[in-house]
Design a protein around this nucleic acid. Structure first.
Lengths: 221, 221
DNA sequence: CTGTTATTTAATTGACCGTTGAATTAAATA
DNA sequence: TATTTAATTCAACGGTCAATTAAATAACAG
């Protein structure tokens, strides 16, 4: 008689203890993926490591194995996922121009493209940077957003002095307005998809609209 | 012997049990105030009734005395504070115009004024309506935002058909853009006050800037 | 064959939260 | 003045749920 076949899985289909055969992808990376998605969906504070583990189809204990603690997982997400993304985005050439139109077009295009490629980013930013008490605020503002914003504002201010920007626009507020035009529609997408009953939106469509609004507002040609 | 004088306050200065002399303001209203502020600051889910009570200088038990339960407190806040505010705002005459410029100016002015007058509103909206899983999303969208947004979008769409709005703007996205231009800068105020090192911003300043951007974008006169 | 690495199972620990009932005091009423 | 009602605090309960850890188990590497 053949020996009783060894059960590889529990009753529910979950894996039993022990090292798995090496057909599993990199669990550490999958945990970071799950963390990014869930943090964006429910916020950092409201996401338990149990939820992250469930989403990555592992157990909470494995999170400790790889990251040591919950806080360390958040740190890892910032350093390994967010910082690189924003780093390369801010290195885009157009952002160094001193022509306001070039500058703003580059900003809108770069960041809208970045954020549509990583859909967990807009909601995460809204929750954890924009909102009071957000867990990423200090890190993101201090190290990343502040330098970019100041550089943009400086360029726009000098452009306005040279009459290359309308006098009734406030250069610093303009930086905020442009961020709003990119970030808000993306973060609010689930809502207005429902309100306006559209099923899908192409990034290009959003970018073109935004650039048009910046270029001439609602003024007719 | 005269009886021992009754202590009116505990060691820490806190009130002792019993009905207070009628010099206290309306505690129920103070509780709603505290709830609005704290919900805006930390989010609804993250705010315990203990925190609300502390802010209003009463005990958690009093919240139950007045509202019955935590959920009922949230309901009360929506019905007694938020709905009336938005109700009167959407009744503003300019919002019925079919001229796009009049329409958008009315929207921006009305809502920016409303929200600067009630500073807890922008952050609350961002957290509890804009963010996935926000506890006010269904209530606010279904009952309040959706009708207004649809009305606006319809008016703008027809204006564009009559060539009174540039063809490269998407009327529905325009509704979202304008909401973004009003809401985002107000919600992000604590941040850019810090980044740009300004101590105070007059509402007029923000409204004028936003209207200018809508009217002509960054195009020179 | 032995040690190391990856993974789960099963406790453990700890915070904290909403709720409730009883006690207490002032105001209202008769 | 006596009695009832309203507004508060106090103290404690019960419950949930989350982060972390120790031990067990299985595969891989040399």
């Amino acid at each position: 008689m053949a020996k009783t076949p060894v059960e590889k899985t529990g009753k529910n289909g979950a894996r039993r203890p022990g090292r798995p055969k090496s057909d599993t992808g990199d669990q550490r990376l999958r945990l970071l993926d799950s963390a990014a998605t869930l943090f964006g969906q429910h916020g950092i504070a409201a996401t338990s490591i149990a939820a992250i583990a469930r989403d990555a189809k592992v157990t909470p204990a494995l999170v400790h194995y790889y990251f040591g603690s919950r806080d360390a997982l958040v740190d890892a997400l910032v350093e390994e996922r967010i910082r690189p993304l924003i780093g390369t985005a801010t290195a885009t050439p157009g952002l160094a121009s001193d022509d306001p139109r070039t500058l703003l077009h580059a900003f809108v295009t770069t960041f809208a493209t970045l954020m549509t490629a990583h859909p967990w980013l807009p909601p995460l930013y809204v929750r954890e940077v924009l909102s009071e008490g957000g867990q990423l605020r200090e890190r993101i503002i201090g190290g990343i957003a502040m330098p970019v914003a100041k550089r943009l504002a400086a360029a726009l201010t000098s452009a306005r002095k040279q009459k290359r920007l309308p006098a009734d626009l406030d250069p610093r507020l303009l930086v905020v307005s442009v961020m709003a035009l990119v970030l808000f529609p993306l973060a609010a997408m689930p809502i207005w998809k429902r309100v306006f009953n559209v099923s899908t939106i192409r990034p290009r469509q959003l970018i073109d609209h935004t650039l048009a609004l910046i270029d001439h507002g609602i003024a007719l040609p």
